[in-house]
Design a binder for these strands. Structure first.
Lengths: 250, 250
DNA sequence: TATTACATCTTGTCATAACAAGTAAGCATA
DNA sequence: TATGCTTACTTGTTATGACAAGATGTAATA
């Protein structure tokens, strides 16, 4: 009855529910709790971790939001079928996403300009037309083959700072977060199909008229300030954009 | 001190936090609380709604998840900058999504077959190869112009039931949920760009070689059973697939 | 036998309470 | 003046307790 299962540290700076969440996540991933099996009930977890039910429910709630478990009212909590890409659907930079799948990537900066914002860019970044913005064009390589052209628009000063960084090997997202202290929240994407023109084809080694995936991405801070507006042109044959969406409650 | 602000019904079947959430959502949308303004603090809301702080936090938590508000530890809760498409990124059927934007849509069933599952379909729906599945091909129209070809694979019996429904005007998603009682959870999407071939071009009135957005969508129930596997071929020029993603905590 | 009622699991909702921790402004001190 | 402390706000975390409501098996009843 008194056997504490793991090292829960009530005085740790990391909240109890986070610690419990991580322990449960580990147990799910290592097979202690298997797919479609019932997890211990909330009251069992309350006893075994020696915390309150609120704390257990907070941990389970986060795991549910991440898709690792699901609950059925009156029955119990169950482990979800594992998915090939468990954590997609979240906002990731290209390098981040590829690195997590074990691919080797790097980028080549093909141009950097400080230019007046056109109508579209100004609107997206909530600036006035002709305000100066930084435009960074990069070609992304996956396993040494060119795969996309990224055109990023950022507020002038941020871009001028970014261009001095190691953009060949580091994601803009990670630099903005880790080095500059921005907290990235949501992004809006628009996706469409188009044909490569001559200049795009030259950059990512496609023939004119080859299919291209064109993604518009506007990234916001957690305070909902637009920070980064990008056009991503992906080779249609070489890449598949994967994500997960949830059905909203009606 | 005793002025109850709105009609909160403690005995209603709809939870208090949901009622409060809807009231706050209304106030945000009608401008009572404006973008980037601070909302009333949790303790103020606790007093004005005469509920506990847990209930207020539950309501605010949901609004935060929906992106309407954001919180700053130690400072307060703020209204987010409103977005053009507030609730996207959730799983919606085509008609559902278009109807919510005020477009007129209908579908035309071009074929219905019961066929043995090929390798890919069997794997996606977690069946054995050559198990019989239903294949439904539909052309979607937006404002009377063809915009996409949807090829849906479902377990045989579900498809045979669906084909008797009014698929011209009702989404498969909504029928599965409202009429058949399935609870839809997450979906996996893969998106790529390709060129229309002759038969696809004929169906959605494109010339051979025109750019097409090809989406693979596998939809799961909340119990993570795969239910519906679809290929969606969108005209690249006529439609933009919009969504919102969140940055996951690291 | 078939149905109903009950007991007992489960998760869902809500109240009250306390303390931690981040923010910011004002005040006292060096 | 500049620095640091106090205080009063905010949201974040956690405990304890209670009842509602859905699911399910068992026992009592028709």
């Amino acid at each position: 009855m008194e056997s504490k299962k793991k090292t829960i540290l009530p005085l740790s700076p990391v909240p109890l529910y986070t610690q419990i969440k991580e322990i449960l996540r580990t147990r799910i991933l290592d097979g202690t709790y298997k797919a479609h099996e019932q997890m211990p009930s909330e009251s069992e977890l309350t006893r075994s971790f020696d915390v309150s039910r609120i704390t257990v429910r907070q941990a389970l709630g986060h795991l549910q939001k991440e898709g690792l478990i699901f609950k059925i009212h009156g029955k119990g909590t169950y482990v979800s079928q594992p998915k090939a890409f468990q954590n997609l659907g979240k906002l990731q930079g290209f390098g981040e996403a590829m690195a997590s799948m074990g691919y080797e990537t790097f980028s080549q900066v093909v141009s950097f300009k400080v230019i007046p914002a056109d109508k579209i860019v100004a609107k997206k970044l909530q600036l006035t037309e002709n305000d100066m913005v930084s435009e960074i064009r990069r070609v992304r390589y996956l396993n040494r083959a060119p795969i996309s052209l990224d055109v990023s628009y950022l507020p002038r000063t941020i871009g001028e700072r970014l261009i001095k960084e190691d953009l060949a090997h580091r994601d803009i997202f990670l630099i903005l977060e880790n080095d500059y202290g921005y907290s990235l929240g949501q992004a809006e994407l628009q996706i469409e199909a188009m044909l490569a023109d001559e200049s795009l084809g030259r950059l990512i080694q496609l023939e004119e008229g080859a299919p291209v995936l064109r993604i518009e991405r506007l990234t916001f801070t957690t305070e909902n300030q637009p920070l980064d507006f990008e056009y991503l042109y992906y080779r249609g044959d070489a890449f598949q954009y994967r994500l997960r969406v949830e059905r909203g409650r009606i």
